[in-house]
């Protein structure tokens, strides 16, 4: 039962990544694409945590921590460039 629930959650997270990527394809402005990249990053972090549960390895959670920190810095750099303040 719990395995079924985790599978459904992973499929919903995967659908979220696909929908964010569709917004990144058809997004007319730069801000749409930056927000789509941010959303893809956050959903990917949740998917990494799901993979860590699915394969019973604690070491995969460290990858999620590094991923969140570094992608935040990248999004901040893009936002500062859009504000012409970098």
């Amino acid at each position: 039962m719990a395995d079924l629930i985790y599978n459904i959650a992973a499929i919903i997270a995967l659908a979220g990544i696909v929908l964010s990527f569709i917004r990144l394809i058809i997004g007319p402005t730069i801000a749409d694409r930056a927000v789509a990249l941010d959303g893809m990053t956050i959903i990917s972090i949740s998917l990494i945590v799901f993979i860590a549960y699915y394969s019973n390895r604690i070491i995969y959670l460290d990858v999620a921590i590094v991923y969140g920190l570094i992608s935040f810095v990248g999004i901040v750099a893009i936002a500062r460039y859009l504000e012409r303040g970098i």
């Binding site: 990858v63 590094v66 991923y67 570094i70 992608s71 810095v73 990248g74 750099a77 893009i78």
Partner: peptide, 11 residues
Amino acid sequence: EAAIGSGLTTI
């Protein structure tokens, strides 16, 4: 890859 490819290269 997350530290260098996704973060540092974009910046």
